[in-house]
Write a protein that binds this DNA or RNA. Sequence first.
RNA 1: GAGGGGUUAGCUCAGCGGUAGAGCAACGCACUUUUAAUGCGUGGGUCGUGGGUUCAAAUCCCACACUCCUCACCA
Length: 505
Amino acid sequence: MSSEKSLREIRLEKLARLREIGFDPFAVEEHPIDHSARELLDRYEELAPAEGEEKSNQIRFAGRVVSHRIMGKAAFAHLSDGDAKIQVYVRKNDVGDAAWEAFNLLDVGDHLGVTGHLFTTKTGEKSIHVSRLVPLSKALQTLPLGKEKDGERWYALDDVETRYRHRHLDLLANPEARAMLLNRSRVVSAVRSYFLGEGFLEVETPVLQNEAGGAAARPFHSHFNALNLDVKLRISLELYLKRIICGDVPKVFEIGRVFRNEGLSNRHNPEFSLLEWYEAYVNLEATQKRVEDCFRFVAESVFGSAVVRTGDVELDFSKPWARVDMLEAISERSGIAVEELKSAESAKAAMTRVGLDASKETHLGGIIEKLLEVFVEPHLIQPTFVVGYPLETSPLAKKDPNRPGFTRRCEGYVLGREVCNMFSEINDPIDQRERFEAQVAERAAGDDEAHPMDEEFLYALECGMPPTGGCGIGMDRMAMLLTGAEHVREVLLFPMMKPDHKPVS
RNA sequence: GAGGGGUUAGCUCAGCGGUAGAGCAACGCACUUUUAAUGCGUGGGUCGUGGGUUCAAAUCCCACACUCCUCACCA
């Protein structure tokens, strides 16, 4: 576009002029910074010089020019270091003719380094009185930085597509979006430090696999040229991690990207970060306790409190989570008697009676989970564990010895959404083989998400795995609920987007 | 995959058959404590892409692309 081209050309001309007068911004390699903008503002009393001592109390700062006001032979600008911004005051007399011209050649978006002393303007704003300035980069594009006063903002970057496709613009222009993304990273770091602090070993297992197992999902397919081998991208971390347990590493975890070839939604991105941990010699209840500890630790270390406010809800992670029995919860919310959920036939009839389509259901477990999803999940706002999952949908969880047809499995819910899935891992290789065989039969019957047979994993179990508790938490969903994000894309730096055929501005 | 909304200047948006608009940003001049700086002046658009209807299309119709929302799909 010609107008945009001309804006860019104007900036290129300014760059050329900067170089002519000895201020080539791209030739500069460094500009040490004594304090962040936030520090300068917070520690102003301590850092500002006394009257007459300005020259011996110089500080260095650098940041992006986010606004500027030039008034004849003096000028103001705000420099942002991303976290906060501070005003700088430049006078022609103080910096000299060449630097003054250089300053006048700056645009919003450029990076500038300054040396000067702290002072307060007539209107009361803590600022830097500049004695020396160094342009550090020239932005050739105009940046969508809005104007701002007293927390009110004008003309900021709002277009969702631009925010996701050009995330750097979002990061530098939208403080709320930036905070969410940074907090997501802090959540992941806090999770890692929790498990390291608890004596877990962090590992990395293969992304490229012959068979993608450990979850019910369609995988992505790829090809390894050197071995002429079709491979799949992992859909979970589970089976490799349990093989490490079989190697007598009793506490192990991984935080890694997994890939599921499924739809997009406000809670689904095809690649997402999954945390899984496995702990030998502990039961389901101990794993639940770990989930509680982990959430409390993360909330406290990232947000400073175990009580997190998100939207208009206060989530309390300081207390043990509520525990509800799956069938009882369904019964309570749907009016279906627990007795009706004992056989596929009666459960189907009940499902139809409450107005749901039962025609696609092939087994009791699927019906029960569907009923849970419809009737119970939306009500689980405060942290809640739903205990007792059906055998058919839990091919890797130990059978509940006291309850035929059910397993020692539990899922945690917060804000009406599943946040974690944990169970006592099957360590009986004969049982595990039977479960896989049942899954293979379902796959043969047309369920392309049924779990494939994994002989390598079975061999490891045959070599002996101790009783083990394991759990998986979607890190993106965890970040969403802690940051109050409504869309998973708000906690992903670069969410999945179709190729854009429009010219890049 | 289905339905609905959107795509106009760098950004945020208005215009919805009759010569493409505003604010901010940009450019010029003035201004050595301003802060959504101010005053005066100036430039900037294949109106998402491709067809069609019409004397005339940003505007109406069709197709396509991207996008958002809802639904479907989604241990």
